[in-house]
Structure formats: C-alpha cells, structure tokens
Design a protein around this nucleic acid. Structure first.
Lengths: 350, 350
DNA sequence: TTGAAAGCGCTAACAA
DNA sequence: TTGTTAGCGCTTTCAA
C-alpha cells in the first residue's frame, strides 16, 4: 500500500558483490576490518543496486534509532506569534543533521496530549528528547523524566523539586535584563519601570530579578505584571502612567509588550526616548526595527540555543560527540545548565 | 548506552497472561477475534508489565512506519520572520496525531541537503511526505517524486512539467488578490498599484494574476516587483511614487511589504487611507494590527492548510481515512490540488 | 580478514 | 478462537 517495488536488501548486495552479508554490513557501517578490494566491490554493488539500509531492521538489533524527539508543550497562539520556536528548531535541526539524527516533532495541545507524548517517549522510539516547557506547573517534564529518556530542556525548568535536576539551555535572561536596566540608568533615568511577563515562566521571573538587581527595592508601583502580549503591554503602560506619571524609563520583558507600551506613550503624548526611554527583550524582527521609534532591545541567540540543546543531548547519548563548541562565551556546566549570553541592541528608543 | 533496563516484550506479556504471542499481538492491535476473558487477561498483563510495542520490530514486518516526513526547503530568514510554517506545522501535527502518525521534520539549508533528504525519503523511513518548496526552480520536488514516496505539496508547485503532476494544498492567492483589488476599486480608487512578491514563487505570481484580473492591462508603471520584505516594500513604494505620483491605492503582495509601503507613504506625507488606500496579504499578526494605520489585508487559514495537507496524504496512504472535511468551502480535487478560500479583513488602511 | 548462524521483537499465514 | 511457525533485514558473536 505504501511501498511499491521492494528495495534491495543486504542479501542482494552480498550476492552481487560475491561476499557474505556480514561483509556488506561491515562496509556499510564504516568498512573497518575489510580489505580494500572487497570494500570497493561492495561499494560498487551498493551503488548499482541503490541500496539503502532498512532502519527498522537495524534498530531492532542495535536498539538505537538515531532519532531525537523535540517536544513543544502547549504551543498557544502567543508562541506562534513569534518566530522563536522556528529559530530554535532550525538550530536543533542543523546540529542533529550534522550527526545523522532525525528530528521527530511532538507538539502538544493541552493536557490531553501529555499522556500520548509520555507514552511515545517511554516507548523507546527515539534515543532522547529535547523539551520546551513554558510553565512552572507543567506536569509534562515530570512525566518525561519518569519515562527515563535522556532529555535536555529548553529554558530553565521552573520546578523546585531537586530530584528533577535536568540539563537545560537558556539565555542569560537575568544578565540581559540587568544590562538593559543599567543602560537606562546610565542614560540618567531614575524612575525606571518594569513591565514583566507572566511570572510563572522562568524567563519572565529571571528578567524581573535582573531588573531588581539594578534598581534594588525601588518603588513597587514601578513594576507591573503583564503577559508578553502587545495588548497586555498597553494595559500595563496605562497603569504605570496613572500610578507614576513621572516615570522616565520602561524596561519591558519582551518586544511585543514594548510595542504596546510605545503606542500608549505616544497616545499620551510622551516622547520616546526624550521623555521616556524604552527597552524591550528578544530583538524580535521585523517588529523591533519597525516600531516607532525603532526599539532598543536585548537580543538572544535563539538558533544557537537550539544548536546547543542538540549538542548537549547528543553528547549524553554518545560521549564521543563534543558537548560544547569551542569557547563561544557560553557559561557551561553540562550536567545542569548552559546559559547563553545576550547583547544589547541599541536603536532609537533608549 | 541509551536504553537502560530492557523493556518487556510480547513474549513476556504472553507468558504472564498465559497465552501465545499471537493472541497478545491481536489484543494489542485492536482485539479482533479474541474472546473477552482473554482480552481482559492480556490487557491486565500489558498494564502490569508496562508493555509498549517495539515499533522497529513492527515496522520490519508491516513495512509501515506510521510516520510522515515534513520537508521544508530553504528556510531562509524570511521564512522564519513569519509564523507561517509554525502554523502549518501545528495543523499538520494535529491531524497526524489524530491518526497516530509521527511527524519527522526535515529542514534543508540550501542544495547540499537535497541529496540527504532524497536519500532519507527513498530509504523508506516514512510512509509519505509533506513538502514545502518555495521556488520554481527547486530541484527537490523532482528528487522526491523520483524517490517514489507518496507526497502532498504545500503551495501550488511551480514547475511546468506535466509529468510531475502532484497533489497540493494552497490558499486562493489569485481570488484573494482579486477581492482586495476589487475592494480598492469599490472605494473609488482608479490608480491602483501593485507591489509584487518574488515572481518565481507561485504565491506571488498568482497574486499578480489576481490583480490583473481586476485592473486589466493598466499602466505597467503601477506594478513593481519586490521581495516580500519590509525594506523591499519601502523601495518599491518609493519607485511607485516617483513614477506615478497620482496613485491612490496600493495592493501589496504581503503584509511585510505593506508595512514598508506604509512607512514610505507617511514619510512622503500621504495620508492613509485618505490619499492612498493600502491592502496587504496574509493577515500576519501582530504586525497587521499594529501598523499605523492598522492594515486591511487578505487572511488565509494557514493552520487549515496544514491540516488539509496531512489529511490528503493520510488518505492516499490509507483510503479509509477521509480525504476532506465535510464542506468547509475548499475547492476540492484531491488528485491535483485543493484551494482554500481567503477572506478580506477590513481594518483602517483601506 | 571473512563467513556462518543466531537472534532482535513483531506480524501474519496457516493449522489445530 | 487460539497457537505454531516462518520470516521481516539487519548486526554481531563465534569459528574458520
């Protein structure tokens, strides 16, 4: 129904080359310990027959799949409004491809899918998993750990449970936030507000911590919790302006939020950056370049995060694979987490 | 190295339930023709042992993988600047999941990867493929067809070669463009310009055709080829304004381009929509809502496209699966193409 | 260095 | 309705 003419087997290649199946197998898998003339003959036969190994048969005996699952939990609209995952996927894909691994994508829509994913992973279909989970209370990571599949997480996991210590890759959310707020302070701003993301996400919580690292225990009215959306940003900005009319800077937890804030500031007649300086986070393009004025923001190297996650996982699966690239500035501790540096991108808003 | 304690096999379950492997197999695969008490006993054993079938062993004999490859050719930055693929993937994933199929993601970076993808598909690792290819001259689709894997394309394939007739899913680019331009004409605009996309992509070519369907052979200076980017849109808009200062409407081939055009219009002191009405294509959010003024545009149901692609493919793989949903307005001809309707979303720019 | 042979865990005739 | 058995295509001891 699905496969037309059956493909040639090892047997066929062996017959054609006049050798045993074992010899063909050796050649196909690297040719160690086979004399040159034979290698050549086998290669030729493989070529002529267009032989491609049957992965199922191979997996059956090796118990290896050369496949890795990428689990993206709850891809709400918010998630897809931003090319974040696409970029990570690209990084992951590049690294996996370079090491001949396949990428099995598992998207979950709410809790119903969790059992399905857990079962799949427990089923030993893949050698490992790369997991993105956004919320603190997400049960999926726990399920996955229990499934016993080697896993690397994307983003610092939020659980407090020490037994669930797991390797992860994240950007330096706290450091990036710190740099942004310091920049604002360096501009002479003294009443710096912060619009947070949903604080049940570690990225949002870490950015808030970075903000606090710099401003200390500033006026609590300068911090408003929001939700990473433009509309949320507008609402938060209005609240801030009502509470602290004299504020002179805003650090928004992401660019979408910053865009909303910018609109409200314009609507209220504040000039940016003259009256109020604004900094976002993500360097989400094209948005960040196209706000009015163009947004100063904290850039994270999303693709590299993906690449690194894959690299870490492959290293766990096969220690011959190098765990990290040669000195790219990442703070590395492969058994727990790897934190990638961020950079402040200066445009016109601050 | 990757799997710790070996998982229970059919054999083990059979022993525990006191039946033969065949019986367990039957129960696991639906339980047809097995008497109730036995079914129950087997279920129990499966439960107690935590048995999960070994997919490799199963594939080896069934020649089925219950897996579908999704091939995304050349994901340039442009592609990831927009949540298009993420949305399609979600639609595909939902449909595949509903039919217990896995999604193997194959991203290609340039030509080097084509051979790799072709080999993978030819290798019979998956039952079918869903392929996105953007450019007319892309050799990948040809390679894939030759690999003999059942395939459904995303977007109307651009090749003229009739032998490569293949099923595809696309939005009604031409019809959507027609509706947009008609809307502009209905507003009383008489000098309607069009900023095209890269014309080696069928979506761009089709939108241009739709424009021509309405304006006929209007002043050729009103059409400028661009590249789907904001910067390209700016450049195109400047050229248009220089050539035809009196134009009173612009239909941009996508929202990114429209955003660029909007900026140039503002910079040149034209009021939108009073002096010049502008319509985009895609309804890319949040961009389309956040331009100034918010963009009137043509929306396509991206997620549904993905879902439909998967449905079509699954139907080819197993005719029991319904090919199309019950009357959702799609123009259906499953052996060639399915074209999904678009809708005009009115905001403030036209 | 090469080959023979024993499975990997499962499904699908076929027989009982 | 249930069990027996013969492979699916490959890797991997073990002997030669």
């Amino acid at each position: 129904m699905t496969e037309a003419a059956s493909r040639p087997t090892l047997e066929a290649v062996a017959a054609r080359a006049g050798v045993s199946r074992a010899t063909v197998s050796r050649v196909v898998n690297g040719g160690e310990g086979v004399r040159e003339p034979l290698v050549e003959r086998v290669r030729q036969a493989v070529e002529e027959l267009g032989y491609v190994p049957n992965q199922a048969a191979r997996s059956l005996v090796t118990k290896r799949h050369d496949a890795v699952a990428v689990v993206i939990a709850e891809p709400e609209d918010r998630v897809f409004a931003d090319p974040f995952f696409a970029r990570q996927l690209r990084g992951i894909s590049k690294e996996l491809t370079a090491h001949d691994n396949q990428l099995v994508l598992l998207l979950t829509e709410g809790r119903d899918d969790h059992a399905r994913v857990a079962r799949y992973l427990a089923g030993g279909h893949v050698d490992g998993a790369l997991v993105f989970s956004l919320h603190l209370d997400d049960p999926l990571p726990g399920l996955i750990q229990r499934a016993g599949v080697p896993t690397v997480f994307g983003g610092r996991p939020g659980w407090s449970d020490e037994t669930l210590r797991a390797p992860y890759v994240d950007s330096d959310n706290r450091g990036g936030a710190r740099e942004a707020v310091r920049h604002l302070a360096g501009l002479g701003r003294t009443r710096i507000a912060h619009i947070t993301g949903p604080l049940d996400q570690t990225s949002a919580a870490d950015r808030l911590d970075g903000y606090r690292d710099v401003v200390g225990d500033a006026d609590p009215r300068l911090v408003v919790e929001s939700d990473f959306t433009p509309v949320g940003g507008e609402r938060a900005m209005r609240a801030l302006l009502d509470r602290v009319p004299g504020l002179d800077a805003v650090f928004a937890a992401n660019d979408l939020t910053a865009a909303g804030a910018l609109r409200v500031l314009r609507e209220r007649g504040r000039r940016v950056p003259d009256d109020v300086a604004v900094i976002g986070f993500d360097d989400m393009l094209p948005l960040a370049e196209q706000t009015d004025p163009p947004l100063t923001t904290v850039r994270q190297d999303i693709e590299e995060m993906g690449r690194l996650m894959a690299r870490l996982l492959l290293h766990r699966l096969d220690p011959d694979t190098p765990a990290t690239p040669d000195g790219d500035g990442a703070e590395t501790n492969a058994s727990t987490g790897v934190v990638l540096p961020t950079t402040l991108v200066r445009r016109a808003s601050a």
